[in-house]
Simulated scan of single mutants.
Amino acid sequence: MALWKIDNLGRKPLLIYGVIGITISLIVVGLLFFLQVENTYLLMTFILLFIACFAFSYGPVLWVLMAEIYPLKVRGKALSMATMAIWLGATFIGQMTPWFLENFKAYGTFWFFAICMIPAIYIIIKVLPETKGKTLEEIENYWLSKKK
């Protein structure tokens, strides 16, 4: 869905709404675990909401943005480093989740990941440029103007 609508809606709106949806779903899932709610349909609804929000925002839009926001002279190295950072982060999350579940319980694990989304919301709103309909040169000029 994101790749179908990314040029109509823009990258930032998809990311903003997706990350807010991810954060809300993580908070609610943590709350359901904390309150020991046994309604599996409610729990499944918010887990599916998390998956849906990720699927229309962070998942695909991040890769599109990475290909657009770096200036041409550093694009190859920057994309390599950004891709490595994403995979290192994913590996860290995958490896640490069992430890988090054991030490922070399920609710603490979901709340921890929700808290991790707060910097993402800030960066998307305040730092990241909207690249929809802009040339690579216009995006590069945006970064150069921010540098000054």
Rank of each mutant, 00 (worst) to 15 (best):
A2Y: 01
A2D: 04
K5V: 06
K5H: 10
N8L: 14
G10D: 03
G10S: 02
K12I: 04
L14G: 09
L15A: 05
L15F: 05
V19Q: 05
V19M: 11
I20G: 04
G21F: 01
T23D: 01
T23A: 01
S25W: 02
S25N: 01
S25F: 00
V28S: 00
G30P: 02
L31Y: 11
L32E: 06
F33Q: 14
F33S: 15
L35C: 12
L35N: 12
V37G: 12
V37N: 15
E38S: 13
E38R: 15
E38K: 15
N39L: 15
N39K: 12
T40P: 06
Y41L: 15
Y41V: 15
M44P: 05
F46L: 11
I47C: 11
L48S: 14
L48F: 14
F50L: 07
I51L: 06
I51M: 13
C53A: 09
F54I: 08
A55I: 03
A55P: 00
F56K: 02
Y58E: 08
Y58G: 07
Y58S: 12
Y58R: 05
G59M: 01
G59L: 08
L62S: 07
V64K: 02
L65W: 14
M66P: 05
M66N: 15
E68T: 07
I69N: 01
Y70A: 01
P71L: 09
K73H: 15
V74E: 10
R75W: 13
R75K: 15
A78T: 09
L79S: 11
L79H: 06
M81T: 07
A82R: 02
A82N: 00
T83S: 14
T83C: 04
A85D: 07
A85L: 10
L88V: 13
L88C: 10
T91G: 08
F92M: 00
F92T: 03
I93L: 08
G94C: 09
M96W: 11
P98W: 04
E102L: 14
K105Y: 03
K105H: 12
A106Y: 02
A106Q: 09
A106S: 11
Y107K: 03
Y107R: 06
T109I: 01
F110I: 11
W111Y: 05
W111M: 02
F112D: 04
F113I: 09
A114V: 01
I118H: 04
I118F: 09
P119K: 10
P119Q: 05
P119I: 10
P119M: 05
Y122S: 00
K126Q: 11
L128E: 02
L128C: 07
P129C: 03
P129W: 09
P129V: 06
K132S: 02
G133V: 11
K134P: 01
T135N: 08
T135W: 07
L136R: 13
L136A: 11
E137A: 12
E137Q: 12
E137V: 12
E138Y: 10
E138R: 03
I139A: 03
I139V: 12
Y142A: 00
L144A: 02
S145V: 15
K146H: 07
K146R: 14
K148S: 04
